[in-house]
Every structure is written in C-alpha cells, then in structure tokens.
C-alpha cells in the first residue's frame, strides 16, 4: 500500500512537472521540479481525485496548512496519513 501511494503521488507530480516518474526523487522540492503555484493547486486537486481524500491546503499560507509540501517525500507522507485518516 505504502509503495503504491508513493508511486501514485510521484506519478501525479511527474505529470505536472512534465517529467518521467523515474526522474522525480523523494528529496526534491516542488520548486526544484519547476512546479509553480498553479501547478501546485493542480497537483493537490489530482491527489484529492486520485485518492478520494480532502487535502487541507490554502494557497495563501502553505506553511500554515496541515499538509506539508516541503518535499516530494513530505507530500507522500502527508497523503499516506490522510488516506489512513479519511479511509479509516
């Protein structure tokens, strides 16, 4: 399950970054990947749709949101916990 979540999140981010999933690594930031603010809200939308979850995120203050977007690994971890929480 964990690997699958990771792979699916990476696939979503890779699509936004116009990269192959293999070119996205866990320690990269969205900025490293060239994803801007619109790309970010689109990625979050794709994550919500893909995992059938609601992601708490306000573009006005990303750091204040419970959803950590500081790196690809952080996003994967946040999605895993939201899936666990909301599908429990």
């Amino acid at each position: 399950m964990s690997d699958t979540t990771k792979d699916r999140v990476i696939a979503i981010i890779a699509e936004q970054a116009v990269l192959e999933p293999g070119d996205v690594s866990l320690n990269q930031t969205l900025e490293d990947l060239g994803i801007d603010s619109l790309g970010l809200v689109e990625s979050i939308f794709a994550i919500e749709e893909g995992f059938d979850i609601t992601v708490p995120f306000n573009a006005n203050d990303p750091s204040d949101s419970d959803f950590d977007i500081s790196s690809v690994a952080a996003i994967v971890k946040a999605v895993e916990s939201l899936v666990a929480e909301q599908h429990a």
């Binding site: 809200v41 979050i44 995120f57 306000n58 573009a59 006005n60 203050d61 204040d64």
Partner: peptide, 18 residues
C-alpha cells in the same frame, strides 16, 4: 483555486488567509 478564506477578509494583516 484555494485562495478563499474560511473566516474573514483581513487585507494587509500578517495573518490574512484569503
């Protein structure tokens, strides 16, 4: 777009949230 506030419109305030 995720730019809307859920509680108030606080222009120019450091804690504004949309």
């Amino acid at each position: 777009l995720r730019v809307m506030s859920r509680d108030a419109c606080r222009p120019f305030s450091a804690n504004r949230n949309g």
